[in-house]
Design a binder for these strands. Structure first.
Lengths: 205, 205
DNA sequence: CGCGTCCTTGAGTATCCTCAACTGCCGTGG
DNA sequence: CCACGGCAGTTGAGGATACTCAAGGACGCG
């Protein structure tokens, strides 16, 4: 179990529990979270000494760690494993580019609503078939982190959450806990769906 | 040689000449260019029937095309090739995430300056060792396309270019041709460099 | 109890967007 | 040959969204 910032140059890991954020930080303090890693996601950068991000635990995290070189050996020796890793990496590209659309072209309202839907989708247990009942979702991020993920300021995130609540889409039970009252309203607030929806949101890097 | 929009579901290609833009388009018309493909870059999405982007020629383009399945066969049968493709794909993730930082956290000025530097770097001939002389660079994009890549409006791009000219960093010879008078000024306008600079800008997807 | 962190809310503002007019260029066709 | 329309770009005026700054509340911890 690890909490805090990790260097992540000579090792890789699989997230077992919790959420890890990957971010880029400018010298002047501006920060952009570039990915959220949920259980099952891979953390690391094979075939390169430099790890080009800052990895930080967003919640308490359990990792399954291994050395970078041994992971590279695994990829070398097991074609099927390598194939799976390649497909995951291709998915990571798609996920990053989806987020580019959000960062570049969506309004603050749409950004926040999209984030809630994304967290809901990714933190759902794979097996649990949820009906249309109200879903409670636990935010793994602070307001500042949400802002850094969405390209907004924390005050803006706070205000948009309040407005989503006013619209009846959600209810803020608690700072970290949000009840999704009307998923369709939330989806509407998230803006028009991209024409080419990817099927499975799996495989972050 | 191909110009126009391509479906790109059952084939892949390598860009031989020209520039291809990959974009995501929302039903309401909002558009985000998610990658620019220069000569040597790969175009396609193996292991998936859906191609999740719109590919469009930004300039006249020469492609080396092959069927998706045959490319997948190549990956299957040639581990070294697969390795190279995997590393390129990993680089693509990094490139996309670098751009996320730009989209989420940079000002209009910084965005435009960064774009110019990026285009300069990517369109430089690999062999040509350029001294500190003034470099002329040819934009492969219209103002609208630059805006769609940067998450701005075309008017804003136009104004920022004028201001960069006023600052003495560049000179607009022509709508499409820009003379970089002072690369260090341009770099300054592009904002603080990211702490973890990747070494080679190669390998888009 | 006091302090620090996170969050909320308000007031004022700046950046970037919207709308609109105008220019230059180019290809078409009278 | 020149008029015309369309497209790309520039520029200006005005406005909206999101930011900045600031104050205050809630909560946890020493």
């Amino acid at each position: 179990m690890i909490a805090g910032v990790a260097a992540c140059e000579n090792w890789c890991a699989t997230v077992l529990e919790g959420v890890v954020k990957l971010s880029k930080i400018l010298p002047d303090g501006r920060q952009q979270i570039v990915a959220l890693l949920f259980p099952g996601d891979f953390l690391g950068r094979p075939f390169q000494a430099e790890f080009p991000y800052t990895a930080e635990a967003a919640t308490d995290v359990h990792l399954c760690c291994y050395s970078r070189t041994s992971f590279e050996g695994l990829l070398r020796d097991h074609p099927k494993f390598k194939q799976a890793f390649l497909e995951r990496t291709l998915d990571s590209v798609d996920v990053a580019r989806d987020w580019m659309l959000l960062l570049g072209r969506k309004t603050a309202r749409e950004k926040v609503a999209t984030l809630l839907l994304t967290i809901m989708a990714r933190s759902a247990k794979p097996g649990s078939e949820r009906g249309n009942v109200e879903t409670e979702l636990v935010l793994p991020l602070t307001r500042t982190e949400m802002a850094d993920y969405l390209g907004l300021r924390l005050e803006t995130v706070s205000r948009q959450l309040r407005q989503l609540e006013a619209s009846g889409a959600i209810r803020r039970c608690d700072v970290r806990r949000i009840l999704v009252l009307a998923e369709e309203k939330l989806a509407a607030a998230a803006g028009p769906p991209d024409g080419s929806e990817s099927l499975q949101p799996s495989g972050s890097l």
